[in-house]
Design a protein around this nucleic acid. Structure first.
Lengths: 337, 337
DNA sequence: CTGAAAGCGCTTACAG
DNA sequence: CTGAAAGCGCTTACAG
């Protein structure tokens, strides 16, 4: 059988409370005692029993992360957020329990009701997300990565997608471009109100409008044929786009570059291209692309920070938007004409 | 505060042991009593406290799944296994804790040592995997999806990759093809000894050999340029391949089909193509491809089954290989010459 | 078919 | 700086 705190106490010649306090640091312990306890722990290979700890201490050191991973969604980006959350959680000694689509709501009820977890991180939130509706009734610390339509009472963290769109549009318009195009996510993402595609598209369109330039949006499925016809839409009409913003998965972006090549269009000579809110590396593309990156580690470590804060008691609801950064790679410049 | 078993017992007018037994079914309970208990549970919104349950019952109802999700690995396929595991686990009332690369070994020690989990599912195993080495010392139920170089003492489940290769090679050779090609994973996968690419490639080569036909292997990185040159390798030499087996991610397979198109090669007129051990849908390709699918649900639900069995006590170590199935779509036929 | 009670392995006031 | 002990909320022999 595994060693218990009693074994450690005996081995170290102290009481179990002293062992517990030495471990938690919640009470001063003399150096000499601490060393003996540490030696005993090493000697016995002791690890505190999680169940007992949870029961007595009312802390499980597990967070739930709910990420639907819908079948038509781009897995690598979404998983990058899950991994970033796991990594950030470990900084606070927390593990993560993964709740997926099948059991989004049932799972939330189960793990919070039975106190398997101390808090919840909500990923890939929809404008109107039933997980949020449920969460409001649940009385458990939670942080939303993303911003639902009604964020009242919630703690939300996200990249400032409106600022991303603004940056991209300004860059292009300042460069002299008057006809902008957005290569976006599949239509289904917008229809279901998936948070970041929607917010980005809206900001893109309204920024273009307020700068007085045209904005065309194409939303291809993830098939070759669709990527092609989306590019045809943007580039083969009477008023072809000269400033392209891509907010879609990497394979589509690579396709799009193929298509520009096939048309003999030079970047940035004929067309300026910006990759917006991308989680992947755009330097491996040909050519390397200017990018306004979406950094999962950033959003998630802040989210975990805010979740940990809530362990001590409720905090002020808020929407925290992280400022974007424009990274120059030479794919967007002034219109040369 | 949340309701406890004491509240339920009081509300139902029975003892707490009766409530517990009604919940677990480990002792008969009269219908009348059961109904009153169920009513009380509903009334109070009772959910058993996981920590207390784990402490008293020595069962946490959580499995760990360790999936490194290496950065250069194809996320969708790997996540499909994680999701399939989570889904299968839920059939037995289990949740899953996700352990990723950062914390593969430390995480395993932690969650098993502190009894956060009742068992471990090991995903994406390498030929020589330090997780396996660790696991052998750990005394916790475990099932490996995949087969390491030395499976002694382990319970392993996997698709029979050798049989997949056999099926593919036989199909092509029976169709008259004498020059086979394999479009495989990136070289790094083989170098690190990633299980299924290695096993597949070896079987492919040896099956071809024993059928007396040539076998060429290309292992492109996931870039356009590399996919192109890999296809050039296979199809632009003096003895171009006529039977192509693809064991790589979907975007590369799509690229490969592009490349065949670009060469004016007809499928299956000029080249027969089989997609091997693919987790994605090959009917959306142009043309739809014959496929010998790798079905995560299959491997994972069997793995979970075997893990649950071990909860009752040790079981015989074994390597269970699941038989593959050939699905015809018309992309592989006899050489028309 | 049901109940009273010990015990799982911790944390944390309470006491000194 | 340290200890003795109550108590967290369950499960499961033990008893009837």
């Amino acid at each position: 059988m595994a060693a218990t705190i009693i074994d450690v106490a005996r081995e170290a010649g102290v009481s179990i409370s002293t062992v517990s306090y030495a471990l938690s640091g919640k009470r001063p312990v003399s150096d000499r005692t601490r060393r003996r306890i540490e030696a005993a722990i090493l000697e016995l290979g002791y690890r505190p029993n999680a169940g007992a700890r949870a029961l007595a201490g009312r802390r499980t050191y597990v967070f739930a992360v709910t990420e639907p991973l819908r079948p038509d969604t781009y897995t690598p980006t979404h998983m990058a957020f899950v991994l970033a959350t796991a990594k950030a959680a470990r900084q606070y000694d927390y593990d993560v329990l993964l709740l997926t689509q099948e059991e989004a709501n049932g799972g939330l009820q189960r793990v919070t009701g039975s106190r398997i977890v101390d808090g919840v991180i909500v990923l890939d939130v929809l404008d109107h997300d039933e997980r949020i509706t449920l969460l409001r009734t649940l009385d458990i610390p939670a942080v939303v990565v993303g911003v639902p339509a009604d964020p009242a009472g919630l703690v939300c963290v996200d990249l400032d997608f409106a600022a991303v769109a603004q940056l991209a549009v300004d860059r292009l318009v300042d460069g002299g471009h008057r006809r902008l195009g957005l290569l976006g996510h599949p239509a289904a993402a917008y229809e279901r109100g998936q948070n970041f595609p929607v917010r980005f598209r809206e900001a893109f369109v309204s920024c273009a409008q307020s700068r007085g330039v045209s904005a065309q949006v194409a939303t291809p499925e993830r098939t070759i044929a669709d990527a092609r016809s989306a590019m045809a839409e943007l580039f083969d009409g009477p008023d072809p786009v000269t400033g392209l913003v891509m907010h879609c998965e990497d394979s589509i972006q690579m396709r799009a570059l193929d298509e520009l090549r096939a048309r003999g269009l030079d970047i940035p000579g004929d067309v300026s291209v910006i990759s917006a809110a991308s989680t992947f590396d755009t330097t491996t593309f040909t050519p390397a692309l200017d990018v306004i990156p979406l950094v999962p580690d950033q959003s998630c470590s802040r989210a975990v920070e805010l979740l940990v804060e809530q362990l001590e008691g409720p905090i002020e609801p808020r929407v925290e938007l992280l400022p974007p950064e424009y990274i120059e790679r030479g794919s967007a410049s002034a219109v040369l004409a």
